[in-house]
Design a protein around this nucleic acid. Structure first.
Lengths: 339, 339
DNA sequence: GATCGGCGTTGAAACGGTTCATGGAAATCC
DNA sequence: GGATTTCCATGAACCGTTTCAACGCCGATC
C-alpha cells in the first residue's frame, strides 16, 4: 500500500539518500545506480509523498488565489493566466472563491496559511490588511490582484478602474445621453467604487448630466435582472436613458430584464443605452451585443504571478504597482455598429 | 518565524501532546489548560503546519477535481456544487483543468497522487482507466463525473447524454426540420459521442431526415464560430436547416457566425434552427435566446462528492452509478416563444 | 608508494505535527 | 482506609522525505 523511499532503497540495494538523489539530482548519481533505482520505483509503483516533501522543505509548491466570484469569466481568465505561468515554474494554483463573503475569504486565507503556500494572490473583498500583513510577516508573499494597494505595502496588478469608469460614462455622454444610472454593488468592493468614481467625474464635467446610483448586493446576472426590472417598471420620464453596469454579468441581467420581457419591453439602445465592464466572451453574443470596458484578464493573472515569484525569490522585497489601462469596446448596446 | 507546537508548549508550560490535544480534542483537556494554551497560541501567532499534519495522517483533507474546461460554466457549476459539499465535510477541492489534453490530465492525476488526496473526481478525457485503477489501488477513491463508468469498476454521476441528444434532435424534427447537422468534437470525448448517438437514433426513426456531422477540435466558442462560418458560407440547398451543438459554448459560437455577420447573415431560427447543450446561464441571454438541454450541474458535483465520501468511509467499497435525466428547454433559437 | 582530490554513496538528523502507552493525582466506591 | 476508577498530562515514537557531514574507493600526481 504505502510504498516509501525506504522500500525503494531496499529493493534497489542502495541507501535512502541515494534514492532521494536519483529523484532530485540524478546527475550526482552513477548511471547504473540511477537505472537500478528507477527499476525499483517502477516495480513498486512508488509515488513521492508530497506532504513529507513539503514538511522538509518548509514551504509548498502551490500558490493560493482568492477571487471574488468563480462564475465570473473575468476571474476564470485571471486564474488561467496565473495557472499557466505557475505551471511554467513548476507550481500549482489553489483556487479559492470568496463569493463576496468576508468569512469565506478569511477561511481561505487561513487554509493557505496552514498549507504554507509559496504565495497568495488575492482580490480582497474585506479590507483585512492586518491579516495580509500577518501572512507576509510569516514569509508568504502577497500580491493584490485587480486592486491597487493603497500604500506601498503590497505589490499589486490592477487596471485603472477610475479611468475605465470614465471611459464608459464619457462614451454614453458622447452619444447624447444625459440621465445616467450606475448599476453596481456592494459598495464595499473597491472596483465598484472606483468605476463609479470615474463615471461620476465624467458626468460632473458635463453640464446637465446626472448620475443615479442603483445599488446591488452582488455582481451577478440575477442581481442585474432585478435592477433592470426595477428600471423598466418606472415611468418613462423617471427612467435613465443610459445604464453603466459595474460588470458584464450585471449588464447581461439588466439587458435580459429590459429587452427580453413581454409587452413593456424597452429597446436597447434606443430607449436605454447599456454598457458593461470586463468584456467577457459572452458579451459580444448577447441579445444586443454589449459595449464594455475590456481588461486584459489573463495577462493580469500572469503578471501577478510574476510579481509573486519575484517577491518569493528576492530577499529584499521589491514592491511594484502595475496598472494596466482599460479599453472601450463599442457594440450595439450603445448604438455602435454590429460587427 | 516558524512557530511550532513545541514553542507553544514551552510558553504555556505544558507538553506538546497537550497542545495537540487542545487543538484536536479540547474536551480531553482541563479548561484552565485549554485557556493557557490558547493564550500562548495567540501570543505567538501559531498556525498549524498542514504538511506535518497530513504526513502523520497519511492522507490529505483535499479532494481533486479534474474537469475538461474551466471556462465552461457547466463545469464551474459542477465545481461549486462539489466544493459546497466538501466544505460541509471540512474538506477542500483542488481544481485541475485538463483542457481536453491527455498530458495535462495525467499531470493533474500525478499531482493529486503525490498529494495523497482523499479522493478524485474526474471527467475523463483520455480513457486512462489503468491510471485510475492504480489510483484506486493505492487507496484513493475515484468517482467519474458526467460520464458513466462502462463497467462497474468506478462509481459515477452522470446525465443520460444519449437521452439528451435524442431530446434535442426530436425537438428539431418535431418543428419540421429534416436536414440536421451535429456540431461537436473531438469525438474522443464520450459526452460528444453519446449526444451524437442520441441524435442519430432520433433521426433514423424519422423517414426523410438526415444527420450531418461537423466535427470540431474543441467545445469552445471559437470553434463554434468557425463551424458556424463554414455552414453560413454554403449554398442554401447544401445547408442544414437545423444545428444541434454539443454544448452551449459551441452553440453560441455558431450563433455568432450565423446571425451576427454582415450582409449574408442567416436568420435563427427561420433559416437555421439551433439548439445547444448544458443550459448555461448565458444561453438565455444570447442574441437569439438559445434552446438547450439542461443538466443539474451543481447537483452533479454535490452528488459526486457524496459518493466519494461514501467510498472513502466504507471499507467495503460500494459502487454506484447515478444517472440524472436531462431536460429540454425551449427558447427562440428553435422557434419557441420568448419569455 | 604515499598523498591528494573527486566521485559516489551512506546513514542519521531534521521538519512539525499526532498518537498512544504510561503514570500520577484526585475522586469514587465499598 | 484501601481498592478502583476517572481525569489529565506526559513524552517518545512515528509519518516519509531531504539534506549534509562523513567515508571509502579509485586514479592521478609527484
Amino acid at each position: 500500500m504505502a510504498v516509501s523511499v525506504r522500500d525503494v532503497a531496499a529493493l534497489a540495494e542502495v541507501s535512502v539518500g541515494t534514492v532521494s538523489n536519483v529523484l532530485n539530482r540524478p546527475e550526482k548519481v552513477s548511471p547504473t545506480t540511477v537505472e537500478r533505482v528507477h527499476a525499483a520505483i517502477a516495480e513498486l509503483g512508488f509515488v513521492r509523498n508530497d506532504a513529507a516533501r513539503q514538511l522538509r522543505a518548509g514551504r509548498s509548491r502551490s500558490i493560493g488565489l482568492v477571487v471574488l466570484d468563480v462564475r465570473n469569466p473575468f476571474f476564470t481568465d485571471v486564474g488561467r493566466g496565473a495557472e499557466e505561468r505557475a505551471a511554467e515554474a513548476g507550481m500549482t494554483v489553489l483556487l479559492g472563491n470568496s463569493d463576496d463573503d468576508a468569512d469565506r475569504e478569511r477561511a481561505y486565507l487561513e487554509l493557505f496559511e496552514e498549507q504554507r503556500v509559496a504565495g497568495v494572490l488575492i482580490t480582497p473583498f474585506a479590507d483585512d490588511l492586518p491579516r495580509l500583513d500577518r501572512l507576509r510577516a510569516s514569509g508568504i508573499p502577497v500580491v493584490l490582484v485587480d486592486r491597487e494597494a493603497g500604500d506601498a505595502r503590497f505589490s499589486s496588478v490592477s487596471v485603472d478602474d477610475v479611468a475605465g469608469g470614465r471611459l464608459a460614462a464619457e462614451h454614453l455622454l458622447r452619444s447624447g445621453r444625459r440621465r445616467l444610472a450606475f448599476v453596481g454593488g456592494p459598495r464595499s468592493i473597491r472596483q465598484v467604487e472606483d468605476r463609479l468614481a470615474g463615471a461620476r467625474s465624467a458626468v460632473e464635467a458635463t453640464p446637465g448630466a446626472t448620475l443615479e446610483i442603483v445599488e446591488t448586493s452582488a455582481l451577478t446576472v440575477i442581481e442585474g435582472r432585478a435592477a433592470g426590472a426595477a428600471l423598466r417598471d418606472r415611468d418613462e420620464h423617471a427612467r435613465p436613458d443610459a445604464v453603466f453596469a459595474a460588470n458584464d454579468l450585471l449588464a447581461m441581467g439588466v439587458l435580459q430584464a429590459l429587452a427580453m420581457s413581454g409587452v413593456d419591453r424597452l429597446r436597447v439602445p434606443e430607449d436605454i443605452a447599456l454598457i458593461g465592464y470586463d468584456d467577457i466572451d459572452f458579451a459580444s453574443a448577447a441579445v444586443v451585443p454589449l459595449s464594455s470596458i475590456r481588461q486584459p484578464a489573463a495577462l493580469i493573472g500572469r503578471t501577478a504571478l510574476d510579481l509573486l515569484l519575484l517577491e518569493a525569490a528576492e530577499a529584499v522585497v521589491p514592491r511594484e504597482q502595475i496598472v494596466f489601462q482599460p479599453e472601450l469596446v463599442v457594440r450595439e448596446s450603445t448604438g455602435g455598429s454590429a460587427s
